[in-house]
Design a protein around this nucleic acid. Structure first.
Lengths: 148, 148
DNA sequence: CATGAAAGATACAGGGT
DNA sequence: ACCCTGTATCTTTCATG
């Protein structure tokens, strides 16, 4: 991971559809050299994928919430592979503290959100926080500071 | 937004670097037709961008946390355009409840995390929850259910 | 939307430092 | 290990129907 790799990451995070040719111009390397570096970043797992970022609201998912789940031991959300397939569930983070995990979820209406809560309730006690807006939805990963 | 648009979104969310030609084969349309549909999805804001997804840990940001900020009125995090430029801050959500917003942040060490908390403290009382792991980091947006 | 041709990009070889 | 040039093949773009 040298400076050139970070430059490539910077550009691919801002626009994942940039061609190797365009990247090669921006980092002053030949297209094959760029292609090989990018392949290496993919294979070492630094790049986990390339995703089109779809606006939830414009796609019809107007209600967004964060749900802290206090799960009932063996019936935990983290232990059921089905929950992570529900289309309303977009992120699951295991966390420290008295709760077990946080879900980022969406619904098409408050009614749909209520039904989602009902489906989660068997796993544990859900504590919901509605997301009013998302001033920062995404920021690129930059090189970590080298010094202390 | 017809079925073909949703098919395109499905593929572009799974792999944002797919060529228009490859997409055209998958949705059974000509490449120019695909290109025009994708441009329309971009211009109407359904597609907000294409991002390479970088693994935080592999990039050196080993400590991840969610911070609920209870801000001091005018000194709120949401009102300061600087905070959203800090490299440690990856998401900001305005929320309901007694807190003002939730930040998803990362640091390269606990020491670095402590310093970040110190920098946030002037804006309000931070309540930190460490992220132990992220079983679901990302899921594609699918068409919302049509019926009630 | 589809077709077709020109311009551009990729992939893969081979060779250099 | 890393990079560059060559060329054949694929892709994008734009005009046209």
């Amino acid at each position: 991971m040298d400076d050139r790799d970070w430059e490539l990451l910077r550009h691919l995070q801002a626009d994942a559809r940039l061609s190797f040719s365009e990247l090669s111009r921006r980092v002053h390397l030949s297209p094959p050299a760029v292609a090989e570096r990018v392949r290496r970043l993919e294979e070492t797992g630094v790049i986990r994928g390339y995703h089109a970022h779809v606006d939830l609201a414009r796609a019809g998912w107007t209600v967004v919430a964060l749900i802290r789940m206090s799960c009932y031991g063996p019936r935990c959300v983290l232990r059921d592979p089905e929950v992570r397939e529900w289309p309303e569930v977009f992120e699951i983070h295991r966390i420290t503290g008295d709760a077990c995990c946080v879900l980022k979820v969406a619904a098409t209406s408050m009614e749909g959100f209520e039904r989602l809560i009902d489906r989660l309730a068997p796993y544990g006690r859900p504590s919901s926080t509605m997301v009013l807006s998302t001033p920062v939805a995404w920021r690129p990963v930059v090189p970590p500071p080298s010094g202390p």
